[in-house]
């Protein structure tokens, strides 16, 4: 079984190479993105909190970095009575 796997598994080096190329392209131009994501989260939250009550704990911010484009996904859970503005 293990010998069979040894001969059939796909090489891993190309994956390492590709992942490094994408990652380093970002790191070289943008530096550390965690500061940016934190700033974006805080500002977006401030805007939304003006209009509805939200739970700051129930927010997820995701950054997916791709070779051509990156996506920023902000997922905010809105409570059932969220439309009533907080006092």
């Amino acid at each position: 079984m293990s010998i069979f796997r040894f001969f059939t598994r796909t090489p891993s080096a190309p994956a390492a190479r590709e992942r490094l190329q994408v990652l380093l392209a970002h790191e070289r131009t943008n530096g550390d993105e965690s500061d940016l994501v934190t700033a974006l989260r805080d500002e977006i939250m401030a805007v939304i909190a003006k209009h509805m009550q939200i739970d700051r704990e129930k927010v997820s911010v995701k950054m997916e970095r791709g070779a051509q484009v990156s996506t920023l996904a902000v997922d905010i859970e809105i409570p059932f009575d969220g439309k009533k503005r907080a006092a």
Binding site: P11, S12, A13, R17, L20
Partner: peptide, 16 residues
């Protein structure tokens, strides 16, 4: 190991 494709090759590292 590099030849088997399980280690980055010299050229890969140099290119990166």
């Amino acid at each position: 190991r590099a030849d088997r494709g399980d280690m980055l090759k010299v050229d890969d590292v140099l290119e990166i």
